[in-house]
Design a protein around this nucleic acid. Sequence first.
DNA 1: ATGTCAATCTGACACATTGTCAGTTGATAG
DNA 2: CTATCAACTGACAATGTGTCAGATTGACAT
Lengths: 224, 224
Amino acid sequence: MCQIDIMSDLKQRRAEEKEQRRETLIDAAERVFANAGFDAATMEEVARVARVSRALVYLYFKNKDELHCAVCERALRLLHERFLSAAASAGRGYDKVVALGRAYMAFAEEFPCYFMALSRFEARAPETVVEGSLEHHLIDCGRAVHQVTVDCLLHGVRDGSIRADLEDPLLAALSLWAFTHGLIQLMHSKKHFFSQVGISTARFAEYAIDFAMRGLHPRAAKSA
Amino acid sequence: MCQIDIMSDLKQRRAEEKEQRRETLIDAAERVFANAGFDAATMEEVARVARVSRALVYLYFKNKDELHCAVCERALRLLHERFLSAAASAGRGYDKVVALGRAYMAFAEEFPCYFMALSRFEARAPETVVEGSLEHHLIDCGRAVHQVTVDCLLHGVRDGSIRADLEDPLLAALSLWAFTHGLIQLMHSKKHFFSQVGISTARFAEYAIDFAMRGLHPRAAKSA
DNA sequence: ATGTCAATCTGACACATTGTCAGTTGATAG
DNA sequence: CTATCAACTGACAATGTGTCAGATTGACAT
């Protein structure tokens, strides 16, 4: 018994250290990705920043892609927190949803590296996802994020601030996600275009949020 | 005079042949990108498919990124044509805009390689664009595509099928683009998720179009 | 203290890809 | 016939990837 306890104690400590090492590597990866950009980043540089050998990085992550997924997972966890805070910050469902949109925008501005990682992930071809893989876990994280939106939508339908004929709130949540994500991506990649044409990104953001939210207004027009 | 004419004749032929060679290389790049995916594609393979030496590819394109831009340019040209057709296919401005949305979706389904190329382009970090570069030209192509949407929106405002208080139609056009692009990207990258949850992509597409178009309805609710 | 065992970590190797350059080829003008 | 010029290629150096045998470390039994 005692022996087993000691064993499992040791094992646990080892596991914790291993986890910490893993986090350190992701820290390094973030810094390198943010600094050099995704394509230009090399495993060599990640290892150098983490002050370990390159081979060690491969021991923790199969390849650059898996490292990318690890960064995305962090991003989604953080975004999930932000979403929960945002949802709690407003009273009516409608206002909660607006808060979510703003939260995503603030998130993208505060952590451009995270947003770029997610953006990159969403632009990938739909590979067949292996069951136990890190990528599969990512999908669950994404689901949790979407669930926050779904809950806010349902809340809004109940309190009457959002139209009741939404059909499936998941469809609405995904639509909103697609909209917001596309929006930030556009604002981010076309920065120069905006400044050139004289559009302030803040104004565009406000405009687009208003635009999107019209899809949720309770008494939408029947016309057209 | 005659000498000059012959000279220019030769020069012109040379230029045409060069242009044709260029197109051949882009053909090859498309096939390779579509087949192997962007990251896995190599210049070697592109050269092999085009049946030239790898060095030649570098003579026509500075690197893989410029080849990518060339594919994007083709994509945008084709999309522009589709947009013009779509806009012409409907009477009222509102219906024109719906047709644009469907056209983009059809385009993405018909030419997944082109959509992926564009998607990738939009997910890039906002590098400073060099003046005469191919990338700079791409931006003009994109502008032409957006202009079609702007024209349809203005048409709709005039014929009363679209709300008159759009403010800047360019903001609305960009919002719609961001929405539609984000949407297709989501449908594309989360295919498995959709089939897993039992959502038909066609249904989602219809839902999202309806959702987006609510932002244009003439008599939108004042509430919220 | 010392051997040993398992886990962590590294140096180095084989291979793939990139970007470049000197130099070959082939058509055309003189 | 040969000089010229653009199109094109083979080969090289540099850089990055993924893997493996083995070095290093630290906890434990003796």
